[in-house]
Computed example of a mutant assay.
Amino acid sequence: MRATPEQQKIASAFLSARQKKTPLTSYPGPLPATMEEAYAIQDAALGLDGRRVGGWKVGRIADDLVSCYGEHRLTGPIFAEEIVDAADGRCPAMPVFAGGFAAAEAELLLRFGEVGTRVHDIDSIRDAIDDVRIGIEVASSPFPGINSHGPAVTASDYGNNKGLVLGPALADWRRSDLLRMPVEFHIDDLCVGRGTMETMLDGPFGSALFLVRLLRARGIAIPPGTWVSAGAITGVHEIGAGQRAEAVFDGKIRVACTVTG
C-alpha cells in the first residue's frame, strides 16, 4: 500500500521526533485504522530514514482486537546500529526517548540464515534459523501514548522499537523444550514478571513465520543475518532512565542492560 500525503507527513513527523529526541504530545495526524495503513506509514518512514535494518521486532495483538485488525501479530524494524551484542556478559546502556514511552521486554531472538523463496510452514521455518539467543527488546517512542490507541498506531512508529540487546546463544535450541523454559524479568533487582513461551500463540517460530509472510507481501527482503525479536515473554515492562533491566532464562542464562534518557 502506497502512503498517502497525510501518511507521509506522519512518517516524517515521527522520524523528525526520533532524530531530534523531541516528545510528541499527540499523534501527528489521523490515526491509522488498519494494519495496512500502519505499514504504509512505516514503509514511508523507512524510505526517509535510510539506515540499515538489522532485524524486526514482533509483538502480539490483543485477542479482543484480532477480529478488528485481522492479525494476531505486528512488526517493526530494528536498525543495525541499535543492535548491541552483550553475549560476553557486559551490561550496555540503551537510550530511550525522554518524555515519551519506554519499556523493556524479555524475548527470544532468532537469526535468519537463508530464507530462500520456498513457501514455509511452522516446521520448515526452523531450517531458515541459524542462531537462537536470549535477549532484551528496548521499546521506546517519542509519542507517550504509542500503545494506548491500538496496534496500528504502535506499528506506525517502527513498532515502538528503539533497540535490541543480544544475550548468550542457546546452543542446544533444536533439542530444547523452549516453550516450557522459565523466564523471569527484573528491573533494579525486583522481579516484575515471570512466564514461558507457551503463551506466545504458536511460539517464537510462529513469529518468524509471520514475519516472513508479511515482509514478502510488503516486498521487503530478508537477508541472512536478520534478527527476529519474537515477542514479549513476561510482559511489556515500563522502565525509566537510570534503571537496570535483566532477563533470566532457565534460572541461569542472563542478559542485562541499563536505560538512559
Rank of each mutant, 00 (worst) to 15 (best):
S148F: 06
A93R: 03
D157P: 08
L15T: 02
M200W: 11
L214C: 02
G59I: 13
G150K: 13
R52Y: 11
S16A: 15
P223M: 05
E198Q: 13
D172H: 13
A13G: 02
P168Y: 03
L201K: 12
I78L: 04
L110T: 05
H149L: 08
L108A: 01
V255Q: 11
G145N: 08
V115L: 05
G59Y: 12
S176G: 09
C257E: 05
I146L: 12
G159K: 08
G55S: 04
M1Q: 10
C91N: 12
Q42M: 15
G29E: 09
T199L: 06
I136R: 07
A93T: 11
M94G: 00
A98Y: 09
E36M: 12
D123W: 13
F205I: 07
P168E: 09
Q7E: 09
H120V: 13
S140Q: 05
V96C: 03
A3I: 10
L24E: 07
V259D: 00
K21S: 13
R90H: 14
K252F: 06
A245R: 07
G261L: 10
E6D: 13
G145L: 00
D172R: 11
A93Y: 06
G99I: 12
V96A: 03
Q7L: 04
F14M: 03
I253D: 03
R60I: 07
P204F: 11
K252R: 14
G113W: 06
E37D: 13
K162F: 06
S141F: 07
E82H: 09
R174K: 11
I61L: 05
M94P: 00
R175P: 01
F112D: 08
T196Y: 11
L211T: 14
D64N: 15
T34H: 11
A86N: 03
Q19S: 13
A33F: 08
V138Q: 00
F185M: 04
M35K: 11
G150A: 11
Y27C: 04
I220H: 08
L74E: 03
H237C: 05
I146Q: 13
Y158K: 07
W173V: 08
S140T: 04
E82A: 13
D127P: 04
V53W: 02
E184S: 13
L46K: 00
D250W: 12
E246Q: 05
G99R: 14
M200T: 11
T199Y: 07
V236L: 13
G55H: 02
R254S: 10
I10E: 01
A86V: 03
L190P: 00
N147V: 00
P5I: 07
A241E: 08
D130R: 11
G55Q: 02
E36Q: 14
P182W: 14
G163R: 01
L48D: 02
F143I: 00
R90T: 04
G145I: 00
I78D: 02
